[in-house]
């Protein structure tokens, strides 16, 4: 997806495309945008052509803004009012608050899971966020307790994967309920050690692995970059198994690798641009009627 920029005085204006979705093109555009900002001090995001932007992608866009703001880059957003639904969504999920030139009026009728930044060491705050916006959300009342439990477990497994493997200090997160499709997407972003870094440094035989090869290796059952005294290599398995039954989706974009599994079908490829961290998006089907009750009863002393 091409990225167009223009100069408006001393401001560099970046055109947000007509449609930005949670797919390899969307991730590619945002990675390209991350690199395009480097070396500039004044950036405008121009939404005049944008008709659709999946709000969970605010995790990526918002993280880019916050990271560059730390480096004293100024940001403005323009022409967002041309698409009232986008303006409403961005007001309510907190994304618009990142820009100096916006005034936000919070409308309680929205279907967002707000854009937030979490200290990786303060896990309780992230737990509270997930409980408030997902567990307690009225959007998923028809799902069984078993299905909800699998959803929360999947999210916490992904969060802990980031805590354990990225070494990043912060996690950026944003989600969205897509009511018509009865789906919920949650995007998590961090700027720590990538899958490629961890896998290629784990064993010398993997030194030449591409980003895509590293992701393929990392999602395989039993594979872990943990040391020989640490147990692991199961968390992604549990998530993938659940998502197959749930008809959900998992996407990972890390360094120059992209991996996705959608309804059990895997797509993996190398990317044109290198993201300086990892993006993970998980999407759940909220029309899932499975009970996910464990019928088999286990005696703990037998499993030890």
């Amino acid at each position: 997806m091409a990225l167009f920029t223009f100069w408006q005085g001393e401001w560099k204006k970046i055109q947000i495309p007509k449609s930005l979705k949670t797919d390899i093109e969307g991730f590619g555009f945002l990675t390209n945008l991350y690199h395009e900002i480097k070396g500039n001090k004044k950036i405008i995001f121009d939404f005049s052509n944008c008709e659709w932007l999946e709000a969970n992608l605010c995790a990526i866009l918002g993280s880019i803004v916050l990271i560059y703001q730390k480096q004293k880059v100024q940001f403005k957003i323009e022409n967002i009012e041309k698409q009232s639904f986008l303006q409403n969504t961005f007001e309510n999920n907190g994304f618009l608050k990142l820009f100096d030139n916006t005034i936000t009026n919070l409308n309680k009728k929205h279907s967002g899971i707000p854009f937030s930044k979490y200290d990786m060491k303060n896990e309780n705050e992230f737990e509270n966020y997930i409980y408030k916006y997902i567990l307690s959300a009225s959007k998923i009342p028809e799902m069984s307790e078993g299905a909800k439990r699998k959803i929360f477990r999947s999210i916490f497994e992904l969060f802990q994967n980031s805590v354990m493997h990225s070494g990043a200090s912060e996690l950026y997160v944003c989600g969205q309920y897509y009511t018509a499709k009865a789906r919920m997407a949650l995007t998590m972003v961090e700027y720590g050690k990538t899958f490629k870094h961890n896998v290629t440094n784990h064993l010398s035989i993997y030194n030449n692995f591409s980003g895509a090869e590293c992701l393929k290796w990392a999602v395989q059952s039993g594979n872990t970059t943990k040391s020989k005294t640490e147990a692991g290599g199961l968390g992604l398995d549990i998530i993938r198994e659940f998502l197959k039954l749930n008809q959900g989706k998992l996407q990972i974009n890390s360094a120059d690798g992209y991996w996705e599994e959608k309804k059990g079908i895997i797509f993996v490829t190398d990317c044109e641009y290198t993201f300086p961290g990892s993006i993970v998006n998980i999407e759940f089907n909220l029309r899932d009627k499975n009970s996910y009750i464990t019928h088999e009863e286990f005696n703990i002393s037998d499993i030890l």
Binding site: N161, G232, L234
Partner: peptide, 11 residues
């Protein structure tokens, strides 16, 4: 989740 169970019991 497995992250807790691995580091407490699996290890």
């Amino acid at each position: 989740i497995t992250a807790f169970l691995n580091s407490s019991i699996g290890k």
